[in-house]
Design a protein around this nucleic acid. Structure first.
Ligand SMILES: [Mn+2]
Ligand SMILES: [Mn+2]
Ligand SMILES: [Mn+2]
Ligand SMILES: [Mn+2]
Lengths: 225, 225
DNA sequence: TTTATTAATTAGGTTAATCTAATTATATAT
DNA sequence: ATATATAATTAGATTAACCTAATTAATAAA
């Protein structure tokens, strides 16, 4: 067995790599606690897996810096994310699911193993750049399509933007957006921002003023202008 | 917890149910040995799982009669087989795989859990009745499309038939068929049959005479005439 | 700087699904 | 009917991925 042998990864290992990638992407320290929260399991379990992933040279870890994906760990993570997002496109575009229904199914589909599957799916879908939530789909080589996004929560009063993606893909959140009639491409204008709790009064597609919480606004990413 | 509660099945339980269904379908006794052979594992492991499936009321078992699916066990098995075959159609028709490449991928995809997935996939594919190997796709209610098939090995000398399905979907077998330029719909005429080892001399699509083994001819199912 | 709080880690289990090596039961052949 | 072979079953381990309950280390508050 050689160091650079591509070892088949388990379901669980793949989910850890993806979680580590996402926590890091959010600029947070990749601690056992953070990983456990992301995977809804126990920090003690995470420590076990950290040791395994270190041995497989997929991550490095030290207590103070947290976990870091190695080059091969990152390649794996991006491959899984790529498959996740491609399958989400398939479920919405081809099977007619709503964007708030596909996450859990893609969470399973992302683990299907076949060398040519992602490429064939990608071609079949017309090489999409973004998934149904506006998240960029990594290319086969791991390159991400660039997409300038700023948080709605960071937009100044009086400014406008178009919804480019959402940072929370949970069903409750997406149902809430549906109820607000807010989707990808919706235009949003910030009418006011309350000092008190950072909630905002906004207009969606020039509609009536609506109040939304800071939790909501921090999960919406916009293309400014 | 009630007796008729639909319990989520594990990957492994689903594979056992499918194996039991197929062994029974072939008219064989569903013994621990037969199941172990089908799943490429150990009879001792099979005994453990037999106990579990009995407790879940998915099968009955006795040493002399072997394992038998209960109504709910059979419904589960047919649901998995339905998904397996629908995904095979998807892989061939939509993603452009060859029929000899899809079995292992479908073996994974059949386990994806979502209440509406099979129905949506079925609709997207145009409600196919047969998979790429000619095997019937059970309907949502478990009904199988009927399709008269006889083994090539049972065809008399001088008679003809069209290939309706194959009973072995392994890559080596399908590669061999591809090499013979034999596919679903090919017409076959039996030119001769050797008493010695039951091998046959056949003509495929009116092509040159070719000799094929009894192992081969027992795995080809034909529509006679 | 002690103290209190929170995070990381260790120790020791559990469960599902597998295994190998007996052992017991059944079937086959002499 | 006895011996031989094969199949079924039991017993006891192993591995992956979890867990809870302690313990140790690091941070934050007083
Ligand atoms: Mn997943
Ligand atoms: Mn997504
Ligand atoms: Mn399977
Ligand atoms: Mn098939």
């Amino acid at each position: 067995m050689y160091a650079d042998t591509i070892m088949k990864k388990t379901y669980s290992e793949e989910n850890y790599l993806k979680a580590i990638y996402h926590i890091d992407q959010n600029g947070l320290k990749v601690s056992p606690k953070a990983i456990a929260a992301a995977l809804d399991n126990n920090p003690a379990s995470v420590i076990d897996m950290i040791k395994k992933l270190q041995e497989k040279l997929l991550i490095s870890y030290d207590k103070v810096k947290g976990a870091k994906l190695t080059a091969s760990g990152q390649a794996s993570a991006l491959d899984i994310i790529r498959k996740h997002r491609l399958w989400e496109v398939f479920l919405v575009e081809k099977l007619g699911y709503d964007w708030d229904e596909v996450h859990d199914i893609a969470e399973q589909l992302e683990h299907i193993q076949d060398d040519r599957l992602a490429a064939k799916l990608d071609a079949f879908l017309g090489n999409p750049s973004f998934d149904p939530h506006g998240d960029p789909i990594p290319a086969e080589n791991g390159k991400m399509p660039v997409y300038a996004n700023i948080r709605l929560s960071d937009l100044e009063v009086g400014n406008k933007g178009k919804v480019g993606s959402v940072r929370d893909t949970s069903t409750p959140f997406l149902k809430y957006l549906k109820q607000l009639q807010l989707g990808l491409g919706s235009s949003i204008e910030v009418l006011d921002k309350l000092e008190f709790d950072q909630s905002m009064i906004i207009s969606i597609n020039s509609g009536p003023a609506q109040t939304v919480s800071s939790k909501m606004t921090s999960n919406i990413l916009l293309i400014p202008g």
